[in-house]
Nucleic acid binder design. Sequence first.
DNA 1: ACAATTCTTGCGCGTTGTGCAAGTTTGCGC
DNA 2: GCGCAAACTTGCACAACGCGCAAGAATTGT
Lengths: 193, 193
Amino acid sequence: METLTTRREHNKAVTRRSLAAAALRLAMEHGLDGVTVEDIADAAGVSRRTFSNYFTSKEDAVLDADRERLRALVAMVEARPAGEGAWQALRASTAELYRVRPLPDVEWMAQLRLLRRHPSLLARQAGDQVALERDLAAVLVRREPDEEAARLMAATFLTTIRTGIALWLEGAGAQELPDLVDRLLGRVQVQGT
Amino acid sequence: METLTTRREHNKAVTRRSLAAAALRLAMEHGLDGVTVEDIADAAGVSRRTFSNYFTSKEDAVLDADRERLRALVAMVEARPAGEGAWQALRASTAELYRVRPLPDVEWMAQLRLLRRHPSLLARQAGDQVALERDLAAVLVRREPDEEAARLMAATFLTTIRTGIALWLEGAGAQELPDLVDRLLGRVQVQGT
DNA sequence: ACAATTCTTGCGCGTTGTGCAAGTTTGCGC
DNA sequence: GCGCAAACTTGCACAACGCGCAAGAATTGT
């Protein structure tokens, strides 16, 4: 009675998660600069070299959960009802994401405050988003046939999310993140075809 | 008969420019990975250690001109007529930037194709933009008092520019960049107060 | 059970960023 | 012009990083 997938994939997924979790935990504990790749590898019970087989840097590992979350969001957008407009689908998916996968408050708060501080993480995160833009735009094309508009929409949308998070982190945290993000999304308009 | 500024500042400016220029030239010539910091330092006639006094990485040096350009744009936005609306000021400044400082076609084209390829440059560039968002938002506040809106506008604007450049690079280059960017800017709308 | 594929690991190497301390240049008041 | 203080450059050393390579271990399919 193994897992549903093959054993290899399962093992890989486990070590990947271990590494990402260890990276996040240690970075929150000692600060990003207070942790070496070797520390993370040790905590996950693998060698430094193996770490490099999964991630290219510690920033990469720390942000793994973030990326996974965004990939889930793209999938949600794809699964929205066919008739829905592009921007509406994005907005609805965002709300859905916060419903289906709420942020584990305390831990995430700490992670994000960490993110916000360290420039190399900000840079990496922004870089990741650029890569995601293509995927998101590809999904959007079904709802917004003009490729140029789809691309612009994807970029604008992701940036709006990022801005929402930034504002939320800076503010006293008086308002709920989902509400803030949704309000921002309501303020932006990208003209379609 | 020295320069207008003090000698020290002048010398610093010279070596900085030398380093940035050398970085750009060598990166275009041999690819980003085909160049070491030492190569760049040698080409500029300084030591590797001195390079680090000016830039933290070669990506940093390569993108120096880009950043300077964006800083000029922020200054232009600040200098626009007082009555002008925020988004209108941004749009006008962009057009002005392309008029006042046209892109040295061939060289820039090559640089941007280089940028687009290399992930670490994309990441760095995106990270720089995040840092610029604050400055731009601060300038915008005069025209858009709602800080949240100003911030969102700054982020959206910079992303639109980036998207325009990305599309331009990918396309056959049939259309002029300024026109493309201006069209994109026309498609986006960020609701003020 | 055996061979092929895939993953892990240790080793080595070139590169990077940075603190430190000595040397050099520039600025400024006398 | 003189000399001192501040600022800048340089070489050195070191921990850390990313990655190619090849040998060993685990997993797979037959």
